[in-house]
Simulated scan of single mutants.
Amino acid sequence: MTNQQLKLRSMIVTALFAAIIGVLAQITIPLPQVPITGQTLAIGLAATILGSRYGTLSVLLYLIIGSTGVPVFAELSGGISKLVGPTGGFLVGFVPAAFIIGFYMEKTSFTFKNAMIANTIGMIITLAFGTTWLKISADLTWTMALAGGFTPFLVVGLIKAALASWIGIIIRKRLVSAKLLFSTHPNIKQESL
């Protein structure tokens, strides 16, 4: 396969994962300040399967599409106002979370244990960004911001981290063995569960 074909395949997979994030974002459990969504599960899947570069690019593409007004954010919403509103910190936090998840996996190995560690770190990064922005944008105290943007999401976040790790490693392993996904980093270890 030529470099041009690999680049095209990578761009297609990146766009596909941006779409998957948009679809899973519509799975919501409404809460007063910030809803529980499938977005974080999709972010974990993208980074676990694609790694730091293409996982992060898929998140950036998703955010660009949503900020232009296409209703891909939670509850079929879109627009730049979502990025600066109370939930904007969570959306922006997806970018460093995806990068760190993928980077951690690339520096260690693609195993469930490492994926779980990486996805847990990614969840904490997303919650930290989201809680900080919720405090600032809604003019809340730290106690109120933590109660509305961090604490209610810990248990669900760990469940989603486990799901993203388990499903992501299985899918990545199958895509690599089918030669549909190739390592973009020479030191990435492809290990089984």
Rank of each mutant, 00 (worst) to 15 (best):
V156M: 11
T143E: 15
K173P: 00
I170N: 01
T151H: 03
A162D: 08
R172M: 10
A164F: 02
A97R: 01
T141I: 09
K113Y: 01
L158Y: 08
P152Y: 07
Y104L: 14
L180T: 13
V70Q: 03
K107M: 13
W166P: 08
V84K: 06
F90C: 07
W133V: 02
A115T: 04
F150I: 00
F73W: 12
P152F: 02
A74K: 04
I121Y: 03
F112I: 03
V95P: 08
M105I: 02
A74N: 14
T126S: 14
S165C: 06
K82C: 11
T143S: 15
V156G: 13
L158A: 10
G157I: 09
L163E: 03
V92I: 13
G93A: 02
A178C: 09
T141S: 14
L163C: 08
I80H: 01
I124S: 12
E75N: 15
I100M: 04
R174E: 14
N114C: 04
K135L: 11
T111F: 03
E75W: 00
T141D: 12
V70C: 07
W133N: 11
V156P: 12
I171S: 03
G149K: 02
I170G: 00
L181I: 00
I117M: 10
F73I: 06
L134Q: 04
L91V: 09
K113R: 13
Y104Q: 12
L181E: 02
V84Q: 04
S165L: 04
L127Q: 11
G102Q: 10
F73K: 02
K107Y: 03
M144I: 15
N119W: 02
T126G: 13
T143C: 06
A162F: 04
A98I: 01
P96R: 11
G78Y: 00
V156H: 09
W166A: 15
F103V: 05
R172E: 04
F99M: 04
Y104C: 08
M144F: 13
S77D: 11
F90P: 13
I124V: 14
M123F: 01
R174M: 10
P96I: 05
K82E: 12
G78L: 00
K113C: 03
I169H: 03
V92C: 12
L127G: 06
F150C: 15
L76D: 14
G85I: 01
M123P: 01
V176D: 08
S165Q: 05
I124M: 11
I125W: 09
P152N: 08
L146G: 07
G122H: 08
S81C: 10
S109K: 07
M105Y: 04
A115S: 03
A128P: 15
T108I: 11
F110W: 01
W133K: 08
T141H: 07
V156E: 14
L127P: 06
I101M: 10
V176Y: 02
F129T: 07
L146Y: 07
L76H: 15
M105N: 12
